[in-house]
């Protein structure tokens, strides 16, 4: 197998196919977010929209280590994680359009995409809400004695929730196969990290739970891949959980509509220059792994995929009104009245 490492110094143990796959995943996430943002601003999508632009390397590098039967839990900024785990962008887009053909039949929306067949145990509208759920998936894996793992994505803001503390402690005590992947994107909504936690490195907290912790450059997809690979191998072989902090940046506002006046244009410019997709693409081109032509072809296929997703979402039917009453336990009286 040709590895990228052999042609890219310090690039890790990935095959060219894997490297190209990660680039495509990142580009697909970016295209999905750009498209969703445009549709939202045009007033075509209801609800909230939290974009993952700028953070793509974390999801792509992490999920490249996973098998279809592994689990993830995601966040309100979850499109990237779900795409990286292999979700169908048509069904995702249909969900954003609140259509019957969406992942959740139009009952979850952007913040709540689930795909249990792919081990996606849900994006989550509650900051920190998915952390105990990933921990439970880890407990289940351990009790069922399989070699699956769970990756729990969350942000720097969520690392201040009680659920973070409770879950990491539980996972460490039971040595659960969970990778806690904190995307430190510098802000909890508008509050900069330095103002919401006194430790600069979130991974330092790992030692408080008795688990390994490390910080990785979240703009470098191969660095993320390598760090998560080590943690996944540890988890699969019974070595327990890991806390990984990936430093990254939320290029968009907290949600579409937030102009993010709380940060400087210099800061934004700094991070724009560290765009993870541009950087990796250039690396692969420089190393001769892909050509400019390959990149163009990839972009074109992604554009087509997105256009098809938008068409699918737009043209799909809305849920029937009756479906508001499905997928939940209901009590009725003898006349059929809901009680």
């Amino acid at each position: 197998m040709t590895t990228v490492e052999s042609r890219l110094p310090l690039a890790g143990h990935v095959s060219t196919e894997q490297a190209i796959g990660m680039l495509r995943t990142m580009a697909l996430i970016r295209a999905f977010e750009d498209t969703a943002s445009r549709l939202y601003k045009e007033g075509r999508l209801p609800g909230f929209l939290h974009l993952y632009i700028g953070e793509e390397a974390v999801a792509a590098g992490a999920c490249a280590n996973l098998r279809p039967d592994d689990y993830i839990t995601s966040t309100h900024r979850g499109h990237g994680h779900v795409i990286a785990k292999g979700a169908d962008v048509k069904r995702m887009m249909a969900e954003l359009f609140a259509k019957k053909t969406g992942y959740c039949r139009g009952k979850g929306g952007s913040m709540h995409i689930f795909d249990f067949k792919l081990g996606v145990l849900g994006a989550n509208g509650i900051v920190g809400g998915g952390i105990p759920i990933a921990t439970g998936a880890g407990l289940s894996i351990k009790l069922r004695k399989t070699d699956q793992v769970a990756i729990c994505f969350f942000g720097d803001g969520a690392s201040n929730q009680g659920s973070f503390h409770e879950s990491l402690n539980i996972a460490a005590v039971f040595r659960l196969p969970v990778i806690y992947l904190c995307e430190n994107n510098c802000y909890a909504l508008s509050t900069p990290q330095r103002c919401h936690q006194a430790v600069p490195r979130i991974s330092d907290r790992a030692s408080a739970y008795g688990m390994p912790g490390m910080t990785v450059d979240g703009q470098d997809v191969l660095a993320v891949y390598e760090a998560v690979k080590e943690a996944v191998e540890r988890a699969r072989s019974g070595g327990g959980p890991t806390l990984i902090e990936a430093t990254t940046y939320r290029i968009s506002g907290h949600h579409v509509g937030d102009s993010a006046p709380y940060r400087s244009s210099e800061e934004l410019e700094y991070w724009r220059r560290r765009d993870p997709i541009e950087a990796f693409q250039q690396r692969l081109i420089s190393a001769g792994i892909i050509s400019e032509g390959d990149v163009k072809a990839m972009r074109k296929s992604i554009e087509e995929e997105m256009a098809a997703a938008v068409r699918y979402g737009e043209e799909s039917p809305s849920p029937n009104i009756d479906e508001a009453y499905e997928d939940v336990f209901l009590g009725r009286n003898m006349h059929g009245v809901l009680i």
Partner: peptide, 18 residues
């Protein structure tokens, strides 16, 4: 551990996965 949110959520995660 003494962690009610953790207990409920961990049990939930296990319930979702078999």
């Amino acid at each position: 551990p003494l962690a009610e949110a953790g207990i409920a959520g961990t049990a939930l995660g296990a319930a979702l996965t078999g």
